[in-house]
Design a protein around this nucleic acid. Structure first.
Lengths: 159, 159
DNA sequence: TATGCAATATATTGCGCAATAGATTGCATA
DNA sequence: TATGCAATCTATTGCGCAATATATTGCATA
């Protein structure tokens, strides 16, 4: 049946490739983290990492640091409580806020992450692709936050 | 409360930034696609695009072209059938296979995508970040498929 | 003090993807 | 023909995230 010779990649699917890379990494990184002794769920590692610096933080604090919605942070909390990586306590000065801290286990885990264990690996990968991957990604995010795709689209079409 | 001054980004979270970029784009692109007259769900556009070249394809054909699992492709099918963008028919020569084709609407939609409507926008964005974003992403994916993170990790630690 | 808005947190629903298991058909070959 | 394996498709469950709605507390100010 018309099996195709993998047609040429089109320049319209940057989003797809970004997703593909993110998912590829989150899969491949699981055994690596396991070998490193990291028990934190992969997608919660950045949360644990920032808590290592903040010591105490509310959902909104964490959301701002991680550039994510506070609702999303909230969804990760129950599992981290179960795993005894974080604890929570009420803010005595603001009854709306709940403060989260790392447990001893959490601090140990954050300590591993703080050593930047993937540094060399990503650096080598960056050399292979000819650009600093993380810098490119961060720059792209920043540029799109400053001027979104719809604005760019309109600018290209208003002449 | 210990509100932090946005601590320095660490080099260990390439996966997170790839995810962030992918999600940012898939959000920002919705109004753009709408303005272009694209009715296909954002995450199914690449599927419709390749069907425009294949004309007829099974789940496995599509999965290979898109570098995704056939199960995932399958999950997108019902919605595309509802929207009357694709149709399906049994392969007369192989009763295991179901063949999918574009409808008239689907071909019209694929026609829009074929014009590479985001080309200029992504090119400008690439200039702003100082590297061809799509090339970097594709190269990173390819390198990781050839040698995964766990292998790289072990190579860094066996000396 | 009472009113209204802001900040924070919680709950629910839906989408996209991964992972696994299971069913059917095709095909080679004993 | 009968057996077993491969290819294809289907179904189910769980995770992560978005989007929206709702509730509670804090705070400014009329």
């Amino acid at each position: 049946m018309s099996r195709s010779p993998q047609q040429p990649p089109q320049r319209s699917f940057v989003g797809k490739y970004a997703d593909d890379l993110g998912q590829l990494i989150s899969q491949q990184i699981k055994p690596v983290y396991k070998a490193m002794g990291i028990q934190v769920p992969v997608k919660s590692c950045s949360l644990v990492h920032v808590l290592g610096y903040l010591h105490q933080a509310s959902l909104v604090d964490l959301a701002k640091c991680l550039n994510q919605s506070h609702q999303l942070i909230k969804q990760k909390i129950p599992r981290l409580l179960e795993l005894k990586i974080i604890t929570h306590s009420k803010d005595p000065h603001d009854k709306r806020r709940t403060l989260y801290q790392l447990t001893d286990l959490g601090r140990q885990q954050a300590g591993i992450l703080k050593q930047n264990p993937m540094e060399q690996i990503y650096q080598q990968l960056s050399e292979e692709v000819g650009a600093d991957i993380q810098s490119v990604l961060m720059a792209a995010i920043e540029q799109l936050q400053q001027k979104d795709l719809y604005t760019r689209y309109n600018e290209h079409n208003e002449y």
